[in-house]
Nucleic acid binder design. Structure first.
Length: 421
RNA sequence: GGAGACGUGGCUGAGUGGUUGAAGGCACCAGUUUCGAAAACUGGCAUCGGGGCAACUCGAUCGUGAGUUCAAAUCUCACCGUCUCCGCCA
């Protein structure tokens, strides 16, 4: 949610931002509607002022005849207010709907483009492996090593179901534990949040109202979060934070549920796209300052890059084009890992910042030194997602004999083992 | 799931229809005092929106949303939440 004042004062900028994000939003129409809203509001407030004033008079006057007369007069005014309020209610309904559709303005540095195909590579790291044998895909390797069971996964869960078994499960724990240690040294407090959450946090983070079809919904009207970002942001909703606790840096660990509606034909095999996975998520709430947001955004992305580098997996980083940005995102970097058998990079991480887009919806504020209220800024980035990371890890580190080298930093979490065999 | 109690500002806590945006206390900020600090004293101290250069002014907000009334923190209803007891259960 953007500030309506900001929208009014920068309507060309906001409209251009929507265009850059390839979204069809009519800012002119919103402002017309807002004019009507303000006009109606003013009329109602003036009438209320009169009622308030006369009501006080009624309380003070003793003369019963005069009282009765004033009460009668106010009855008529009240009817007038009711009519106007109904009109305002209708305006507000449309106004709110439009306001929810207004996207945050992308940063200058965001490239133009419609889809992820137009994202721009800004960094390449590591050497892609060369094999002196025919490399296999992660499905075949993991099946052979009894690390995964897709058949039974599908039997029990259905489409996209999987079991991680034996070293598949062990390797997952190793990654989580290693990530916990790695990110803790960078000032992140670990949190295990609830992922079965009320609607509010989804609205606040921008996953609703758009995107409902990608969420699992319970019979109580709650939703299963597709990322810990939802409950981590909801955590401080409606709060006024002490400025000196900022920045807040959280490392959320949670299962993630995604319906993947509309991607039925995509990535139908393997561990790339599943309905249920686990993710460690970095999240920061910081003071409302663009430079600070930018600084932390770079830091979040660098954290994940360095985490991947410590695992020695080749990757590249892209800056997402306007059309590939979410409604609230100002700028986003994706980190993509090399997947040898597919001969391409696949997304593992996504780092973005929002300015006060989310915190305005959620009501997360703090007071500055001068006692002035501000909405905090929010940012988040994947730390690491399992089992997706296993795809590139397994494929990159496979050997001719079918075994897989365990990255050195993970070995102490795997009982000192060097290979999965 | 059954029964009951309750939800007031950063915290605590008065307030059960009429100048109550809300007493008192704590915390916080400024000043007086002090070499400095503490204590004491004086003053200030909610948020959101509208109008105004400003002083200021108008509206809204006492969990949330509706309702009754000329007038609601106070009455009614629904929802959300917290606590206590009983039941069930990991």
């Amino acid at each position: 949610m953007l500030d309506i004042k900001f929208i009014r004062e920068n309507k060309d900028v906001v409209q251009a931002g929507a265009v850059k994000k390839c979204l069809d939003v009519d800012i002119g129409k919103l402002i017309e509607l807002d004019d009507a809203r303000l006009k109606e509001l003013k009329e109602i407030e003036d009438l209320r002022a009169e009622v308030n004033k006369v009501s006080n008079d009624i309380a003070r006057h003793q003369d019963p005849k005069l009282k009765a007369q004033l009460i009668e007069e106010m009855r008529a005014v009240k009817d007038d207010i009711k009519t106007k309020e109904e009109k305002l209610r209708q305006i507000m309904e449309e106004w709110q709907l439009l306001m929810l559709q207004v996207p945050n303005v992308p940063d200058m540095s965001v490239p133009d483009g419609n889809t992820d195909a137009e994202n721009q590579e800004i960094k390449v790291w590591g050497d892609k492996p060369t094999f002196n044998f025919e490399p296999k895909d992660h499905i075949e390797i993991m099946n052979t090593l009894k690390m995964v069971d897709f058949e039974r996964g599908t039997k029990v869960h259905g489409f996209r179901g999987y079991y991680l078994t034996n070293d598949g499960a062990r390797l997952s724990f190793a990654i989580w534990n290693y990530a916990m240690d790695f990110f803790s040294t960078r000032g992140f407090s670990p949190i295990i949040p609830p992922v079965l959450d009320r609607k509010d946090s989804f609205l606040g983070t921008g996953f609703l109202p758009q995107g409902e079809e990608d969420l699992y919904k319970t019979q109580d009207g709650d939703f299963l979060a597709g990322t810990a970002e939802v409950p981590l942001m909801g955590m401080h909703a409606g709060e006024v934070l002490e400025k000196d606790i900022l920045p807040l840096k959280y490392l959320g660990f949670s299962p993630c549920f995604r319906r993947e509606a509309g991607s039925h034909g995509k990535d139908v095999k393997g561990l790339i796209r599943v309905h249920e996975f686990y993710k460690l998520e970095q999240l920061i709430l910081c003071e409302a300052n663009h430079e600070t947001s930018v600084k932390f955004h770079e830091e979040l992305n660098k954290n994940t890059e360095e985490f991947i580098e410590s695992l020695e997996i080749p990757y590249h980083t892209v800056i997402n084009c306007g059309g590939d940005l979410g409604l609230g995102q100002v700028k986003k970097y994706d980190i993509e890992l090399w997947v040898p058998k597919e001969n391409k990079y696949r997304e593992i991480s996504s780092a973005s910042y929002f300015h006060d887009f989310q915190t305005r919806r959620l009501g997360i504020r703090y007071k500055d030194e001068n006692g002035k209220m501000h909405y905090a800024h929010s940012l988040n980035s994947t730390a690491i997602a399992t089992p997706r990371i296993l795809v590139s890890m397994i494929e990159n580190f496979q050997q001719a004999d079918g075994t897989v080298i365990i990255p050195e930093v993970l070995r102490k979490y795997m009982g000192g083992k060097e290979f999965i065999k």
